[in-house]
């Protein structure tokens, strides 16, 4: 666990998708959108993994000041050894599937779908 990330970032490929999410006007910040994307990925049971090539965007202290998020990730992914790296992976995966191909990401549909 000592090798876990101290910063979390978005890949270049996902950067425009994150902007698309932001442009929906439904998020006040990139971090809110990234957290939403992370939850989306987790809800869709995206397997644990790592994303390579992510730029530095946030310090983990800003993303998870209380450490609760880390606990939550470890709850959902009990085998994870590097929860912040996994968090970064989930954010990138979520951003990609939410807004990668979509012209107008359907945030409302995702949030309130009855599935």
């Amino acid at each position: 666990m000592s090798n876990d990330k101290k910063t979390i970032g978005i890949t270049k490929a996902n950067y425009s998708a994150l902007q698309k999410l932001l442009q929906t006007g439904q998020f006040a910040s990139e971090l809110d959108a990234a957290k939403f994307a992370m939850a989306f990925a987790a809800r869709n049971e995206v397997p644990a993994g790592r994303t390579n090539g992510a730029d530095t965007k946030w310090n983990v202290g800003s993303v998870d000041p209380s450490g609760d998020l880390r606990e939550m990730v470890l709850t959902l992914y009990p085998d994870a050894r590097e929860p912040y790296r996994l968090m970064e992976h989930l954010m990138n995966e979520g951003i990609r599937s939410l807004a990668g191909d979509a012209k107008n990401p359907d945030v409302f549909g995702v949030l309130f779908s009855t599935d």
Binding site: F27, S29, D32, K35, F36, F40, A42, R43, M72, L111
Partner: peptide, 19 residues
């Protein structure tokens, strides 16, 4: 703007069943 402010915790809503 109010919605965007509220959306900071939207990820909790999204993950609420799993949590």
């Amino acid at each position: 703007q109010e919605l965007a402010a509220g959306m900071a915790s939207a990820w909790c809503t999204l993950l609420a069943p799993q949590m």
